[in-house]
Design a protein around this nucleic acid. Structure first.
Lengths: 233, 233
DNA sequence: CAAGTATTCAATTGATTTGTAAAATATATC
DNA sequence: GATATATTTTACAAATCAATTGAATACTTG
């Protein structure tokens, strides 16, 4: 702890770097990243986040304070529940930039992500317009395998909600003839690859779409919200 | 440490979130952010970084390992010296996204940045083309107040190098009649505002340009490198 | 007041930072 | 070549900071 001859400004607690570090700290653990990733898919209460992220409620609450301290999430109290959501678009852009950096520079990250690729990841940079087109024509079925709250908060128009957890028990709802495309939270979420695995084991022609709703939104694609109205497939 | 009934994948050390957190951790302290910010302005040796950032050499070396572990910097050994540089453009984009987020969402950050504004920050979103134009016509003088190694690594064509430290003692080189525009590492660096302060105290019409060379580059503006050839002002 | 949700508190445990000193690496000198 | 010198990395120890958990507290609704 040498005092040295620094000016007051330089070692003060209120440098720009100190402030930037608040954002860095907020991203410094897997727990908070997971929470933020879930939050990117729609607003959530503390309890539902805790369940989804498989963490204690107290712990999640603590993490959320840190995220709020870094300006990344906002909260709103409605009755008994406190709902958290990502603060604004800058947060999603920042998160994306972080993912792109990881994908470009971290070999381990690349390995983990490509492990989810399941062989035929031709869907990787699928033409989104074409996907929507084929879905509208009824040529394919698109399923949203995220937990239902996220589906309700926003999904690809025409997509069906079948949470990955329930996949195995709801196969009857899906016709064998059509090609099935599954998506989840994004390229780094494992829900869709799990679902595709189950589908393939049961003889379906299933593929995964890398992009999740946050990316879909960022591309300016349409997003529907609310319950699914049951039509025949 | 409850084992719970999680699948192997979920709590493994090799989740995507765990990898992303490496980047977050690398950005979790002001020290490493300062180092990275300096590095954005050009390659540097460990020792010169230590001096610039006012940190111990051993400490800087540690920080650099962490940054390299996060894929953000590369190093190259040349003789006695090890030269570090930012790994690729993704790093700069990520850093910018972080700054934009901070500016949009952290009140304290905003306050610190605007403190450097020095009143007449009309230069804030100056037309860059116009600046180059006026500089070419000799209507203004543009000075680069960063340490010389950074000037040499890349500067605005036609700008003169006068490190902020030497500002006070090199006033004689600057004619009183012309308007002076100073720039440094970017919006969150305090060098330029210090220099402008000194200039104003001595009767100069001086202004600060918010953007630094990293931003200048990102905008696709031309960047010159090498020594300054002494012409008359 | 009772029940349910979220936050705070206290305590343990584990990481990170930083300075000093020593070790490793490369260069130059005798 | 051996030795001295300069740069960088590692090792170690002290201090600081962060994550997690269960218990206690606060807040809101019925």
């Amino acid at each position: 702890m040498k005092p040295k001859d620094q000016t007051e400004k330089d070692n003060a607690k209120d440098t720009a770097y100190e402030q930037l570090a608040r954002i860095g700290k907020a991203m410094a653990g897997p727990g908070r990243l997971k929470i933020l990733d879930i939050l990117r898919n729609g607003p959530r209460t503390v309890e539902s986040l805790a369940e989804e992220a498989e963490m204690g409620v107290a712990n999640v609450s603590r993490h959320l304070q840190v995220l709020r301290g870094a300006g990344m999430v906002d909260s709103e109290k409605k009755g008994l529940y406190v709902t958290y959501r990502v603060a604004d678009a800058h947060v999603c852009e920042f998160f994306s930039a972080m993912c792109r950096l990881a994908e470009a520079r971290l070999a381990e990250f690349e390995k983990i992500v490509s492990r989810f690729a399941d062989g035929s990841e031709a869907m990787e940079s699928v033409d989104r317009e074409a996907l929507v087109n084929r879905l509208e024509k009824g040529e394919i079925i698109v399923i949203d395998v995220r937990p239902e709250p996220e589906y309700r908060a926003g999904h690809i128009p025409g997509a069906v909600s079948i949470p990955a957890e329930e996949m195995a028990s709801r196969l009857a709802e899906l016709p064998q003839e059509k090609e099935i495309v599954a998506y989840c939270r994004g390229p780094y979420c494992l829900l869709a690859s799990r679902a595709v695995e189950v589908l393939r084991e049961n003889g379906y022609a299933a593929r995964r779409m890398r992009e999740g709703i946050p990316e879909w939104r960022a591309f300016g694609m349409p997003v529907a919200s609310g319950e699914h109205q049951h039509e025949t497939l």
